[in-house]
Design a protein around this nucleic acid. Structure first.
Lengths: 231, 231
DNA sequence: GCCTCTGTTTGAGCCAGCGCAAACGCTTGC
DNA sequence: GCAAGCGTTTGCGCTGGCTCAAACAGAGGC
């Protein structure tokens, strides 16, 4: 059953490609639905496929031998993920879990060489993505080295807002269910501390929230906190 | 003045290339000597060149607006660095400083497209390098999120030993001058804490040292500390 | 050989944030 | 409508590692 090229035609990744090209790329792929909380691939498993997220949100998680979990990042619509093949890796360095119901395109690894050869712009885009993730991860190391917990939480929430924010009546809402525990795993702290910080912010009218929900009502105030310039 | 192909013939990066290929790659490059502590490129400067370290060691440092420094990584002989061009970036995300006297090959950015087109294996190797750095950086995030300072210092020293260790009579020595402050900037702590930890290890016969010098005499003990399984 | 500079060591006090504990309340399933 | 479960909130006490401070010791310059 063929996939319609409209699935990917609008994505920046495939900008400039003709209908025939899009069809060629899609002909190698398989689309699937992934229910929330289902695992797309597992850490340390053999990496035989790579993916692109069409809709929904995916959480990329590393688990330590001791059982601690750290959220490496969230994948947004239109992004490649699990591209171990592009980095010359044979296993996935982390697990990928659907943070919300998702639609995912999946290619076998052998398709990578072909796509890269025939559509260099797509390959270059993927490498740019990897480069951006490296920058972002290094940014996180810097934050964890130099900032206090409250600033780190502010930075993490701002990142989420920028990458996955959705405007609503009360402010900008994170577009998928996210727990205090998740935020703790993004910032290297505990859910207790995250809860305390968010509660304090709520009293100051900076954020709203609720169960598995975060709404930022005053992004500017958050920015000031992240930069440690609170008035 | 032409560069001799023996400069790079032995490097894994250029494995499998013929003499003519090596000459072609070198014909685009410029070799230079960099004295210890000299800056090779500056954070946020326009990225117009990329580099390969022939000998010596390079420290890659990020500086925050507040003036805190964080060491992103050390570059070893034979590695590319400053390859912003490969990640589609127009500025350098960090500064590069010679940690010891260095010999560096430098190409203008436009050489990248040519090298990548004519020698795909070299391009793939560079992308593998970026992928490895992403993994390593994420590993660091995990460490900073889940481990105590002593474990992180142990992990950092072990990484240095693996990447830049040199066997001597008393043990494995880090191959370039490195201060307690440097180790603090790698692990997100203070030079005081690093000094205390190293002094304690010295008493236990795990490491030796001195001014700008670290010698590991019992790597296995360090490994146990890093994994929090100290007897 | 002396002086200065830079890196290292060590002490003392303090506090941000963690661990532990318990209660609370929204959601979901029956 | 009720029960169970999961996510969240809040309190309390403790401590790892930071800050501040000062002394110390090689290395290099003159």
């Amino acid at each position: 059953m063929a996939l319609d090229r409209s699935l990917i035609a609008g994505l920046p990744t495939f900008q400039g490609l003709g209908d025939r090209d899009l069809d060629a790329i899609l002909s190698l792929a398989r689309a699937s639905h992934v229910a929330r909380d289902a695992e797309i691939f597992a850490q340390d498993a053999a990496a035989e496929q790579f993916h692109l997220l069409l809709s929904g949100h995916v959480r990329v998680v590393r688990t330590t031998p001791a059982g601690d979990q750290v959220i490496a990042r969230y994948i947004n619509e239109g992004e490649f993920f699990g591209i171990a093949v592009a980095m010359g890796r044979s296993t996935y360095p982390a697990s990928a879990v659907a943070a919300a119901d998702c639609v995912v395109l999946t290619w076998p690894n052998r398709a990578w060489a072909e796509i890269q050869a025939r559509f260099p712009a797509v390959g270059a885009g993927a490498y740019r993505t990897i480069g951006e993730r490296l920058q972002e991860t290094q940014e996180r190391v810097v934050e964890m080295s130099t900032q206090q917990v409250e600033q780190r939480i502010a930075s993490a929430v701002l990142r989420l807002v920028r990458q996955s924010g959705r405007k609503t009546g009360e402010g900008i809402e994170i577009d998928f269910p996210i727990t205090r525990q998740d935020i703790a795993e993004m910032t290297g702290t505990t859910l207790h501390t995250v809860s305390r910080v968010l509660s304090a912010w709520e009293e100051q009218g900076i954020v709203g929230g609720g169960r598995q929900k975060v709404v930022v009502t005053d992004p500017h105030a958050l920015l000031l906190i992240a930069e440690n310039r609170r008035p």
